[in-house]
């Protein structure tokens, strides 16, 4: 690597200075995520004993379940609660100091905790409310 620090094209290195830059970028891309030791997120516990499916399954596949349910609900009027986004929010709501559920803009929100760690944006809450439905108005 020291050799290619020579400015301009060197006879020994076909890429010269550009090669060094490229190598540096590649090294940086590989090294940074390893070096930056971000702690794994502490996932808030939901209500009840267990989720609708085993936790490892939910971690990998929750988006598929919600997506499937979403199309059924919107197009066919199927409003069963298993796999529904509303039910996710009902069980997994995180409360703030005042005991009120937090919105997805709060870093403590169940969805936000993991999604910001994984750097995946959540499109759901562009339209859906991210808090559980207040009990009085809640529907079966």
């Amino acid at each position: 690597m020291t050799r290619s620090r020579t400015p301009g094209r060197s006879a020994n290195s076909p890429f010269g200075g550009k090669g060094a830059l490229f190598a540096a970028i590649v090294v940086a891309m590989v090294a940074i995520p390893v070096a930056a030791d971000v702690p794994a997120p502490k996932i808030p516990k939901g209500k009840g004993d267990k989720c609708v499916e085993p936790t490892p399954f939910m971690r990998r596949n929750h988006m598929e379940l919600i997506l499937h349910k979403r199309d059924e609900t919107v197009h066919q009027g199927i409003r069963s609660t298993k796999y529904s986004l509303k039910e996710c929010l009902n069980c997994h709501a995180v409360n703030d100091e005042q005991g009120q559920p937090v919105a997805f803009t709060d870093p403590r929100h169940f969805c936000t905790v993991c999604h910001s760690y994984a750097s995946v944006s959540i499109d759901c809450f562009e339209c859906h409310n991210s808090k559980p439905e207040p009990k009085a108005a809640a529907t079966p």
């Binding site: 509303k86 919105a103 562009e126 339209c127 859906h128 409310n129 439905e133 108005a137 529907t139």
Partner: peptide, 15 residues
Amino acid sequence: VIMDQKHNAPRGKGT
């Protein structure tokens, strides 16, 4: 941008 939508009527910017 819209926040605090009704749960039965999701609505959001740009649609």
